[in-house]
């Protein structure tokens, strides 16, 4: 009986936490993959790994843990895409993409000029320019920017979520800001 109550309470807390981050997680994954279905799959997979691995950790630890899992899933997605392309080329099935087989998977980004369904629905040149500017950023720069500026993680939490040093986060963030400023000023 107590165990059931404990499990229900745990589920309630996890549900509330995941509900609080899921929309932003989906948006970040969509910016990284350029595909809504892939993004949904990554978010669900990330949620599953998070629940399975970290449900008993203190709630204050959950945000950096969740973003670390999702970041890992996104990086893994890019690597797998690269591997699949390489094997498709090897078996003469065509690359199915315009990237070379030795491209850096972590630097791979979605089509910078593609407009997502949300942007089409929402319209507005400014919104479209922001979407394109974010997609044009290298993955690491975009991730540093979104985690620091949008999600509000501090430098140390962002560094651990991304698996790099705080100095690298600062560098990625600085470059992201410069690129965004340049891109958005050009599209005023």
């Amino acid at each position: 009986m107590e165990l059931e109550e404990s499990t229900a309470a745990c589920r309630g807390r996890l549900d509330a936490f995941l509900r609080s981050v899921e929309r932003r997680a989906l948006r970040m994954a969509q910016l990284a993959t350029g595909n809504l279905d892939d993004a949904l799959e990554l978010v669900q997979d990330g949620m599953l790994v998070f629940v399975r691995s970290y449900r008993d950790k203190p709630e204050s630890d959950w945000p950096p843990l969740f973003w670390r899992v999702l970041d890992s899933r996104v990086n893994d997605h890019h690597r797998r895409q690269t591997v699949r392309r390489r094997w498709r080329v090897f078996f003469g099935l065509g690359a199915g993409a315009d990237e070379s087989e030795d491209a850096d998977p972590l630097a791979a980004v979605a089509d910078a000029n593609a407009i997502g369904p949300l942007e089409q629905a929402l319209g507005g040149e400014s919104r479209i320019a922001i979407e394109r500017a974010l997609r044009a950023l290298p993955d690491r720069q975009r991730q540093a920017f979104l985690l620091r500026v949008w999600e509000g993680l501090d430098g140390a939490q962002t560094a651990k979520a991304m698996g790099c040093s705080e100095g690298s986060v600062k560098t990625h963030l600085f470059r992201a800001m410069e690129a965004l400023r340049k891109h958005l000023e050009e599209h005023r």
């Binding site: 745990c10 589920r11 549900d15 995941l18 949904l40 599953l48 998070f50 629940v51 399975r52 449900r55």
Partner: peptide
Amino acid sequence: SRQQALDQGL
């Protein structure tokens, strides 16, 4: 997706 992750994860 969230409910499925919770069901399977828990």
